[in-house]
Simulated scan of single mutants.
Amino acid sequence: MYRTKAYAAAGKTAPMACTSIPRRDPTARDVQIEILFCGVCHSDLHYARDEWHEVFPAVYPCVPGHEIVGRVTKVGDGVTKHKVGDLVGVGCLVDSDRTCPNCKAGLEQFCPGQVLTYGSPDKHGTGPATYGGYSASIVVDEHFVLRIPPNLDPAGAAPLLCAGITTYSPMRHWGVTRGKKVGIVGLGGLGHMGVKFAHAFGAHTVVFTTSPGKTEDARRLGADEVVVSRNADEMRKHAGSFDFILDCVAAPHDVNAYIHLLARDGNLTMVGVPDQPLPVNVFGLILQRRSVSGSPIGGLAETQEMLDFCGRHDITADVEVIPIQRVNEAYERMTRSDVKYRFSIDMASLKAEEPA
């Protein structure tokens, strides 16, 4: 066991601050990684402030971060997938039971025994719960370590490990491809990745936003059309025409307005998580055999597929790179949607810190 620097919250009202945490020494199948960049996900804020207590209670001290890019510094004797010096990534999962039907199907994200990168029971006993990527290094089983294409900027690649796969996976599942008409609701951290993927898949891509000022940026990201969702006439023009709509909005909103835009057998997938239930008009589903679904991240194989796709198409997240010392400010700005479109922490900034 060794100790490494990290930023942690000591309680739900405490700011993130420098500390020292334990990490296990690599076992035969483990990879030790020096973390170069870690994306900041809204889930990090929710967890650190214990805002999801009913479904995902925080364990303190908590070290968030599940959008990790780094260099391999050590590998166990049994590791075959990675070598020292490789550029690699770690996403939302660091383990699963490996034996359930979901794992055998390559769908580790649905495993009942999944181990999240932070906040899950740590079977190795190095802490009260797993510690995430706001740290100088991490040790992870090789199966949960992914290859990062070398042509991708590592700062922009970090959010692909969550925001990227969260938007890529449902598009693959519902068959988004050339000739399809795809809607992206909300142009934020998730939505901007959805636009990039839909465009790269060759779909006719339409962004729905409440902000007319986002039109130019939506087109820059790859949108063919931009619809201001508060404009009833603009919405009416698209009635019954979408094959797939990805809803990235985490605030309460009228999903029936978007269900009405689906064609026969069209699907609306929710990846945003509003903090209260959303009413659904069932007739809007029945009359055209439409469906509404939800989707989390993807499995390990699909996440690697997504990263390779990004490498071929030169896709990364649009990021604002910050030092770790500004992470509390970043949290406050996220609550105001004041970022285009993700924060990425330069973990080299942690070297200057001294644990409290």
Rank of each mutant, 00 (worst) to 15 (best):
S293D: 04
S344F: 02
H199T: 10
P170E: 02
G284P: 02
F201G: 11
A356T: 14
G119D: 15
P154C: 08
D346Y: 10
H199G: 04
L152A: 00
T167E: 09
L116K: 04
S291D: 12
M193S: 05
Y118G: 09
E67A: 05
F110R: 11
V31A: 01
E302Y: 07
L161N: 02
R230Q: 10
D318M: 06
A352Y: 07
H199E: 09
L187K: 05
Y331V: 01
P252Q: 07
G213E: 13
D243I: 02
P323Y: 07
I33N: 00
V40S: 04
A203K: 08
T167S: 10
D314M: 03
F110V: 06
H124P: 06
C310V: 06
P159Y: 12
G127S: 15
G191W: 08
Q288E: 13
E34N: 09
P274S: 02
D122F: 15
V182N: 06
L221E: 00
I322Y: 01
D346M: 12
V176K: 14
A10D: 14
R98F: 14
G213M: 11
D338S: 05
G132V: 06
K12F: 12
Q32E: 12
V255M: 14
Y341F: 12
G106Y: 07
E302A: 05
H143Y: 14
H124K: 10
G311M: 11
S293A: 13
L152Q: 01
H260M: 13
A198Q: 03
D217N: 09
A10E: 14
S293E: 07
A301H: 09
K123I: 13
V79N: 02
A218L: 06
A155Q: 08
G189N: 09
P279E: 03
G70H: 04
S337Q: 11
Y7I: 08
A6Q: 01
P61R: 08
V282T: 14
L160E: 12
D77A: 05
L246F: 02
P26C: 03
L116Y: 07
H260L: 12
R49Y: 07
R312N: 10
P355I: 09
A28N: 01
H260A: 15
D265Q: 08
D50E: 13
G164S: 12
G188A: 03
L116A: 11
L268T: 13
G91S: 03
R49C: 07
V69G: 01
H42L: 11
K180Y: 04
D25I: 00
D233K: 15
G78R: 03
V145A: 00
F56Q: 08
V226A: 07
E305A: 10
N328Y: 00
A257M: 12
H238R: 15
V55T: 15
A157W: 06
